[in-house]
Every structure is written in structure tokens, then in C-alpha cells.
Simulated assay, not measured.
Amino acid sequence: MPKTPASKPARDTSSEIDAGLVREIALLLSETDLSEIEVERGDLRIRVARQTYAPAPVAQTYVAAAPAPAAAPLAAAPVAAAPEHDQADVLKSPMVGTVYLRPSPEAKPFIEVGAHVTEGHKVLLVEAMKTFNDIVAHKTGVITAILVEDAQPVEYGQPLMVIA
């Protein structure tokens, strides 16, 4: 009796996961900034989730200045006060992240001290979790001070600049 080639059993493709569909769902997840998506097609159910990590707080150390030796009595000298700004003029960071004063390292800054801006004008970026967020002027005026440096970590509510 002649031998016939053994036929392979048919693969059950109904339980295979469509990698392309998973990639599409993962892309949708990152584009919409969601943390989890679940999709059902017939008896197939795919759940894609990602973990989000809050950036670690930046440790700041403050060192007190050593007292000056009391060699001579101190005369009442005028002390230059730290610049005070009307709180309505101060643009504060809406999030924790890293501030960028220019759109790319080789580009010129969005704004400079003395520049006139209108409300809604992009003045800098704050990067948080690999997402660059436009920070816009909260009012129309002139930039009188920039209180942060490019690529500096910032905290929520930290003053970024003064628009008077």
C-alpha cells in the first residue's frame, strides 16, 4: 500500500491574536493618553493597559550661610529686597516637569525679556512623561522676567515668568 503524505492538522486561527490589532490599540492608547483600553470582537477580547509613572520629586537642598564674625557692630544698611511681583503677573507652572524655553536645542527661544505677548501666545514648553505641553501667556503684556532656565525641572505652581 503506497504511503500518502500525512496532512497537517488545520490550525485553529480563531484563538490567535491579531498583532496588528494590538499595535493599533496600543497606538490609540498613547495618542489619547488613556491608561487602558479593552476591545471585544466576537469571542476574542483584547485588553491593552499601560502603567503611568509620576516623575520623582526633585530633591532640593538648602544650605544656610554661616554667620559672619562679629568683628564690628553692624550699621543699619539698606538691604536690597527681593523683587516682588504682583501675583496676577506671575505665570506659574501648571504641572511637574521639565521646562523648555525653545522648541528645539538649536532654535531661538519662544520669548525673551522685553517681548510683548498676547494672551494665549505660546511662551514655553513643559515636558511631562515624554509629552511636550504648550504653556501660553495668561494675559497680554510685556515679559519683565524669566524665572527659570532652559531644561530646568519645575514643580506644580512654580513661578515661570512675569508678564506685566
Results as ranks from 00 to 15, higher is better:
Glu127Thr: 05
Ser7Cys: 05
Lys122Leu: 12
Leu34Asp: 09
Glu38Gln: 13
Asp18Ile: 02
Gln51Glu: 14
Leu28Glu: 12
Arg50Gln: 15
Met1Pro: 09
Pro159Trp: 01
Pro69Phe: 10
Ala72Ile: 09
Leu74Asp: 12
Ala75Val: 11
Val154Ser: 03
Phe110Leu: 04
Met129Leu: 03
Val162Ala: 13
Asp43Gly: 11
Glu24Asn: 14
Thr98Lys: 03
Pro78Asn: 09
Ser15Val: 14
Glu106Phe: 05
Gly20Asp: 14
Thr4His: 12
Thr32Lys: 14
Lys3Phe: 13
Ile25Pro: 01
Ile111Phe: 04
Leu21Trp: 06
Val148Phe: 03
Arg45Met: 12
Glu36Val: 10
Val48Lys: 06
Ala88Asp: 15
Ala82Gly: 11
Gln87Pro: 15
Ala77Trp: 01
Ile146Gly: 01
Ala66Gly: 04
Ala10Pro: 08
Leu34Tyr: 09
Ser15Ile: 15
Ala76Met: 10
Ala151Thr: 11
Glu155Gly: 00
Met129Pro: 00
Tyr53Met: 10
Ala115His: 13
Lys92Met: 12
Thr144Gln: 03
Ala82Cys: 07
Ile46Phe: 08
Gly42Pro: 00
Thr118Gly: 09
Val63Asn: 04
Asp33Thr: 06
Pro78Thr: 12
Ala77Phe: 06
His85Ala: 11
Thr131Tyr: 01
Lys3Trp: 09
Ile25Asn: 03
Val96Arg: 01
Pro55Val: 04
Glu112Asp: 14
Val39Pro: 01
Lys130Glu: 05
Lys3Asn: 14
Ile37Asn: 02
Arg102Thr: 09
Val48Ile: 13
Thr13Leu: 13
Ala56Thr: 08
His121Ala: 14
Val90Gln: 05
Leu28Gln: 11
Gln87Val: 13
Thr52Ser: 09
Gly120Trp: 05
Lys130Ile: 04
Thr144Ser: 15
Glu84Val: 15
Ser15Asp: 11
Pro103Phe: 03
Ile143Lys: 02
Met129Trp: 06
Ala66Leu: 15
Pro159Phe: 01
Leu21Tyr: 07
Leu44His: 13
Ser7Gln: 14
Val126Asn: 01
Glu106Cys: 02
Ser7Gly: 07
Glu38His: 04
Ser15Tyr: 11
Ala56Trp: 05
Ala49Arg: 11
Asp18Tyr: 00
Ala88Phe: 08
His85Thr: 02
Val22Cys: 11
Thr131Ile: 15
Ala6Cys: 06
Leu91Cys: 10
Asp33Glu: 15
Asp89Tyr: 06
Arg45Phe: 03
Tyr53Glu: 12
Glu119Gly: 03
Pro159Ser: 04
Ala49Asn: 00
Val117Met: 00
Met161Ile: 00
His138Pro: 01
Glu16Lys: 07
Val96Glu: 02
Asp43Thr: 15
Ala76Trp: 01
Arg50His: 07
Leu160Tyr: 05
Thr13Tyr: 13
Ala115Leu: 06
Glu38Lys: 13
Ser35Leu: 09
Tyr156Ile: 04
Ala19Trp: 12
Ala75Arg: 10
Ser7Phe: 04
Ala71Gln: 12
Ala49Trp: 02
Glu106Val: 11
Pro73Arg: 10
Leu21Ile: 07
Glu127Val: 00
Ile46His: 03
Gly42Ala: 03
Val96Asn: 03
Ala65Pro: 11
Gly120Asn: 08
Gln51Ser: 13
Ala64Arg: 15
Leu28Ala: 15
Phe110Thr: 03
Glu106Tyr: 01
Ala19Gly: 11
Ala6Phe: 06
Val63Cys: 01
Leu125Arg: 07
Pro94Glu: 08
Ile143Ser: 06
Ala128Cys: 05
